[in-house]
């Protein structure tokens, strides 16, 4: 990067503590990371914003770090970094897969994981992945840091658990148990650069005697664009865990039961991108397919 010749570059916060202090001093500051949702937000009059808090020049907020039992991802880390980061690709392939389909290259080079969380769209591509991985959001604010389980972060349509003055600092991803598979599926209008009609992530394991006949030992399923918030599909999980898995059941009875349970626990709506009926039917089909893939050879 070129040395700052002036303007506000020198003014931007360089530490998380400084960013929090400034936000505490001036609650009207608008935090900006990649800006890819903010700049087209219908909830913000751009010309009326007098001051922004630039989150892109804070080293603590960017990058991937090794922690005990997992990885921590700085909230302002762009998806372009996540999709090609060796540790993310190896240990959290579902997140890498989601990062690779968040818009096109230009969006991925700017849009951040923390921004996806805070923007709180039910269609955010990374959000079902974070739910299925049981990620933990670390928020920083005037009272210091606190941890919010991802499942408690989105409290309503486009509402988060953050209190005024708080920023998302990082996201902790606990390593899933050995042998578990991570799967990600996004259905949009086109293959690239589309907002999801349905997006699903799964983390689970089929154990037992080989892959021909086993048992679903664990499954965490989550979906986006099918309710007011991204949701864990707990009824579908319950319908799968402990059940015998074989290529046969995974095409028939097991798949049907889990798919139907998923469909029954979501509340999709009609909107500009799709219809409630299409979303429910597509979710069911995607979940059925994921049940098959969960125990199939990679």
């Amino acid at each position: 990067m070129t040395a700052a010749p002036g303007g506000t570059a020198a003014d931007a916060p360089r530490t998380l503590a400084d960013a929090c202090r400034r936000l505490g001093d001036d609650p009207n500051l608008v935090p900006v990371a990649g800006g890819t949702d903010l700049m087209v937000s219908d909830r913000l009059e751009r010309s009326a914003v007098a001051g922004v808090l630039d989150l892109t020049r804070i080293p603590e907020l960017t990058g991937v770090r090794e922690v005990a039992g997992g990885l921590e991802i700085g909230a302002a880390t762009p998806f372009a970094v996540l999709r090609s980061h060796p540790a993310v690709c190896r240990r959290f392939p579902a997140l890498a897969a989601a990062a690779a389909v968040v818009g096109g290259w230009q969006i991925q080079s700017r849009a951040t994981l923390g921004g996806n969380l805070v923007n709180a769209s039910p269609a955010g591509d990374s959000l079902p992945v974070l739910l299925a991985l049981e990620a933990v959001v670390v928020a920083a604010g005037p009272a210091g840091e606190r941890e919010i389980p991802c499942a408690a972060f989105h409290v309503g349509y486009r509402k988060t658990a953050l209190v005024p003055g708080e920023l998302v600092a990082r996201i902790r991803l606990p390593d899933p148990s050995p042998g578990s598979r991570q799967l990600f599926r996004k259905v949009g209008t086109r293959e690239a650069q589309a907002i999801s009609k349905v997006v699903v992530a799964a983390v689970g394991r089929v154990g037992g005697e080989g892959r021909e006949g086993g048992v679903v030992e664990s499954l965490r399923l989550a979906a986006g664009s099918v309710a007011a918030t991204p949701v864990r599909l707990r009824a579908a999980e319950a319908a799968a865990v402990g059940k015998p898995w074989s290529p046969e059941t995974a095409r028939t009875r097991l798949a049907e039961e889990v798919g139907r349970a998923a469909r029954g626990e979501v509340t999709p709506i009609d909107d500009v991108r799709s219809t409630a009926v299409y979303r429910a039917a597509t979710l069911e089909r995607v979940v059925r397919r994921l049940i098959l893939d969960l125990g199939s050879p990679e």
Binding site: M1, G7, A9, V32, V52, T56, R110
Partner: peptide, 23 residues
């Protein structure tokens, strides 16, 4: 599309405030 510090970015989504000191 423009290059912002060498990375492709959509100039309709980049706020002026973040351009200070950038290439």
């Amino acid at each position: 599309t423009v290059l912002l510090d060498g990375e492709p970015a959509l100039s309709c989504l980049v706020p002026l405030a973040q351009c200070a000191g950038r290439d």
